[in-house]
């Protein structure tokens, strides 16, 4: 594991957080935030300006920063793990139907039950359903497993998108439909402390566990028989990893809706930079994914007068990045 590189990227992420905390409609410097927070937590009297800074930071910017980091890290590390475990560099949470399944599940929670715990539970069930359907469909054509998995994912995504559309059709047009539509475009604007208290610990735990699973993920990427011969219980480990990645992807859907491409492109870009060894790749992918989502989200809320949905902007940015990584990969081989 390349510890220096990981520490360096961790420091860069720290700098990005400081930079992002100062960006937005309300101008505030890093020094001002630090002073206001110090005064707030040490019980010193606050000026009206400091009170505003504390409120904006703790209620608006910090949850959003944390949500961007968790969503970006979860989606990108899940993409890298899926690619290795399924031995297919073209899969991602979006392509495998996980995001579409989790969205359909969450939409059921929002539209039918209007309950936060049920939204989370249905999102997880939907995510597992999405990846389960992709895998089942891919088994129908075992002669070309890579292609079959991609087609299985496509069909699975379409099925769950259709389910979500059905829910949008029956949703209340005054409140539920606009909320559902905007959320499905991918946005962090609804990230809140309460929401993060629900999903944050699971996502943090999942990302840390996966970051430390490089040894097993490497073995699984060689195929079942080689992994078993290396001492890995491939069936149990694969199930564990698929369950965990699907869980954190579903939680990211609960927080931010559908953010496509991040789970596909960030692992590819990271492999171009540091190679495919998952011992280093997985923590690096998590940090790069967090940084990418954080900076892109800042772009969506700072550059234009209106805020654009994050999912749209990540897709627009990731497409040329993916084309570039494919081109570089091709030129190397």
């Amino acid at each position: 594991m390349n510890k220096r590189l990981i520490l360096f990227l961790g420091a860069l992420l720290g700098l990005a957080i400081i930079l992002v905390a100062t960006q937005g409609r309300y101008p505030v410097s890093a020094r001002e935030i630090a002073h206001a927070l110090w005064a707030h937590f040490s019980g010193q009297p606050l000026t009206p300006r400091s009170e505003e800074v504390v409120f904006i930071f703790l209620s608006i910017r910090a949850p959003r920063i944390l949500a961007a980091i968790l969503v970006g890290a979860s989606l990108s590390i899940s993409g890298a793990v899926y690619q290795s475990v399924f031995r297919n560099p073209l899969v991602s949470p979006g392509i495998l139907g996980v995001l579409a399944g989790a969205s359909a599940g969450a939409a059921v929670g929002i539209v039918i039950f209007s309950s936060w715990p049920l939204t989370q539970a249905f999102s997880l069930v939907g995510g597992l359903g999405g990846v389960g359907l992709s895998l089942t469909l891919s088994r129908l054509r075992p002669q070309s497993p890579m292609l079959a998995l991609l087609v299985g994912g496509l069909v699975s995504s379409s099925f769950f998108v259709a389910l979500t559309s059905l829910l949008k059709y029956v949703a209340d047009t005054e409140n539920q439909l606009p909320e559902l539509t905007y959320w499905l475009m991918g946005t962090l604007s609804r990230a809140s402390v309460t929401q993060l208290l629900w999903v944050g610990p699971l996502m943090v735990g999942g990302v840390i566990y996966l970051s430390l699973s490089g040894r097993v993920v490497n073995a699984l990427s060689l195929g079942d028989e080689e992994a078993m011969s290396l001492g890995v219980d491939s069936r149990r480990e694969r199930l564990k990893l698929i369950g965990l990645t699907t869980l954190i992807c579903s939680m990211s859907v609960v927080v931010a809706g559908i953010i496509n491409w991040v789970g596909l492109v960030i692992p590819h870009v990271a492999r171009l930079i540091i190679g495919p060894n998952n011992l280093t790749l997985l923590p690096v992918v998590a940090i790069l994914g967090a940084m990418f989502t954080l900076l892109t989200d800042t772009l969506t809320r700072s550059v234009w007068t209106a805020e654009f949905p994050l999912g749209i902007i990540t897709s627009l940015i990731c497409l040329p990045m993916f084309a570039f990584s494919l081109w570089r990969d091709q030129s190397r081989s």
Binding site: N88, P89, N218, S221, L222, E226, R271, G275, P276, N277
Partner: peptide
């Protein structure tokens, strides 16, 4: 044959 689809060192 080694089954990896990734170009490990």
């Amino acid at each position: 044959a080694n089954g990896s689809v990734f170009p490990y060192l």
